[in-house]
């Protein structure tokens, strides 16, 4: 199932947040979106999910513009896990996951045995089966995040959009969650903060800066010392393994003078 954005723009408060972005998500791939805070990652994800209409340009699913597709139709194919979705309602963990079945149920079509099974499986997938009776407000941030993922899996989408899904998680659960998502037969688009996660799990990485996609390619093509410095303003060393994977090691910021001489050195080195 293909998802495609063509010259999509979106602005808020007179400021252009997403600026004429072209992006085609390939079926089955894990596409990471990286970029500094405020670069438009979240807005782009919302546009791809169709919950915000673009100011100009189109987002299309299987060649059909989202604007001409019903919300229900979209939700049967695309699931979204937001960065921070909270509630004060006294719901159980299981009830939060059951919401994922919403696009598949109508006002008159009742909950079925099949829906129960799907929810059971989704809870199992994220390792939260034992928590299903717990109240939402008694759960930790990480547990809540895993339930959001379970809810999106219960939605049985073909495309999963994730906005910084590993916030609040400890390192074990960060890796576990990305591995879990990676293992699903799904197309995944995820805004990620951690460049090493992007390096390990993504097939392709898109780099966003000030609302534009400034680079798109495989992790080894994208994660270079120059680009990391240009986009994030951080000095880093990128190490490469024999198997072709890469690893980003950040360096401690030093007084400006050293930083400049360092980068000059790095440029010299590159030459």
């Amino acid at each position: 199932m293909s998802l495609k954005a063509e010259t999509v723009s979106w602005s808020a408060g007179g400021r252009l947040i997403v600026d004429a972005v072209d992006l085609e998500v390939m079926p089955g791939e894990f596409l990471g979106i990286i970029g500094p805070n405020g670069s438009g990652k979240t807005s782009l994800i919302s546009l791809l999910a169709g919950i915000r209409p673009p100011k100009s340009g189109t987002v299309s699913l299987e060649g059909r513009p989202l604007a001409q597709t019903t919300r229900r139709d979209i939700a049967q194919h695309i699931a979204l896990v937001e960065q921070q979705a909270e509630t004060t309602e006294r719901i159980t963990a299981r009830q939060a996951v059951e919401l994922g079945r919403t696009p598949h149920l109508g006002a008159l079509s009742p909950w079925s045995r099949r829906d129960t099974d799907i929810v059971d499986r989704a809870l199992e997938h994220v390792g939260m089966s034992d928590f299903s009776g717990r109240m939402w407000h008694t759960l930790s941030g990480g547990e809540r995040q895993r339930l959001h993922i379970a809810r999106s899996l219960a939605q049985q989408p073909q495309i999963l959009l994730l906005d910084e899904p590993t916030n609040h998680l400890d390192i074990h659960h960060q890796i576990g969650l990305l591995e879990l998502v990676r293992g699903q037969p799904l197309t995944v688009v995820a805004a990620l903060h951690d460049l090493n996660h992007a390096a390990v799990f993504c097939d392709r990485i898109a780099v966003m800066d000030r609302g534009r996609i400034v680079a798109l390619g495989t992790p080894t093509e994208i994660l270079t010392e120059d680009r990391i410095f240009a986009v994030f303003g951080v000095a880093a060393t990128v190490e490469r393994d024999e198997d072709g994977s890469c690893f980003v090691r950040y360096r401690r910021p030093r007084p400006k003078l050293h930083l400049i001489s360092d980068t000059t050195k790095r440029h010299d080195h590159a030459r």
Partner: peptide
Amino acid sequence: TFGAESAASLG
């Protein structure tokens, strides 16, 4: 339950 945007993403 999780807000209007979440409701929209649920169809």
